[in-house]
């Protein structure tokens, strides 16, 4: 008997098996294929190259806050499409679709929670909601979070990820830059700490307001952070942009960040800062 002859039944294909959606993810940094469970264990970073995946507010609040400590505020606040904005689509339809798709009411979630038992007020943005854009609702929720921080005197933490101000609310969106910055000036005058955490990407109006105004500015490795988007700059100057331009490490080098912190060390770092400021 030939050694290569099958002694058992052939492996029979049982029809095409569906891979559960999102079970395996390709790393955006090194191309490594990573299993969902491993990704979660690594707080959505690549174990091989440290690439930081974009995550939603749910995941981020989980990794930052003590288990079960988050209590959401102003959950029902939502946009009214104040200008009746229509481009290729109605803004009101866009909102409805995005709400349905993401299960969120707008691009930020705010609330109170604890970091190693230290109470904080927290706001965390969702890039999945119209590019994490800031319109009236984001501005108002941040303003209310600041009010809460002033009232309780608990430190404020804002986790940003945003493409900038929301075009569909035009000048009203622009005014949210002034609104949030004005409220932060008030918070600062009251002597309550504010820690800004910038994740990929933080650009435009969010960078030009609260993201850059932290008493401590922290960013995740590799996060794109800037005012103008790289495409716009490239168009304006007609040249390729240098490698690493507008990345977190670049901003650290230029003096606009206090530190670049790996997501796995984020909670510990923030906790240490909070403790230093409190005692």
């Amino acid at each position: 008997m030939a050694w290569f002859r099958r002694s058992k039944e052939n492996i029979v294909s049982q029809g095409k098996k569906e891979t559960p959606d999102g079970l395996w993810t390709k790393c955006g940094g090194c191309g490594e294929i990573i299993h969902r469970r491993q990704l979660e264990q690594n707080l959505f970073t690549c174990a091989k190259c440290s690439f930081h995946f974009r995550v939603g507010s749910r995941e981020y609040l989980n990794l930052l806050l003590d288990d079960g400590s988050f209590s959401e505020m102003d959950k029902k606040l939502h946009s009214t499409d104040p200008l009746g904005f229509v481009d290729t689509k109605k803004y009101s339809d866009r909102l409805k679709e995005t709400m349905k798709k993401t299960g969120l009411t707008d691009a930020v979630r705010t609330g109170t929670g604890k970091i190693d038992k230290q109470p904080v007020v927290v706001a965390c943005m969702d890039f999945a909601f119209i590019g994490g854009s800031m319109g009236s609702v984001v501005g108002e929720k941040i303003a209310r979070a600041i009010n809460k921080a002033m009232k309780t005197r608990h430190p404020l933490i804002i986790v940003s990820s945003s493409g900038g101000a929301r075009m569909m609310e035009a000048a009203l969106s622009l005014m949210q830059l002034a609104k949030t910055s004005a409220k932060l000036a008030q918070l600062s005058d009251a002597g309550v700490p504010y820690i800004s955490i910038m994740t990929d990407p933080t650009t435009g109006g969010v960078t030009a307001s609260y993201a850059m105004l932290g008493d401590v500015n922290i960013a995740e490795p590799g996060a794109l952070i800037g005012f103008a988007g790289p495409r716009v700059i490239k168009q304006t100057i007609g040249k390729d942009l240098p490698k690493g331009f507008q990345r977190a490490e670049f901003l650290l080098e230029k003096g606009f960040l206090d530190m670049v912190v790996h997501r796995k060390e984020m909670k510990e770092t923030v906790s240490k800062l909070l403790s230093l400021l409190a005692h």
Binding site: A178, Q186, A208, S209, M212, F227, I233, T236, K254
Partner: peptide, 26 residues
């Protein structure tokens, strides 16, 4: 608009604007 250039970003266009909003407020 604020100038969208490499040097503008290097010198912190976003921070400069944010700082003004903050300081002008009070």
């Amino acid at each position: 608009g604020a100038y969208p250039g490499i040097e503008a970003e290097e010198r912190g266009q976003a921070e400069a604007i944010a700082r003004n909003l903050f300081e002008m407020s009070h």
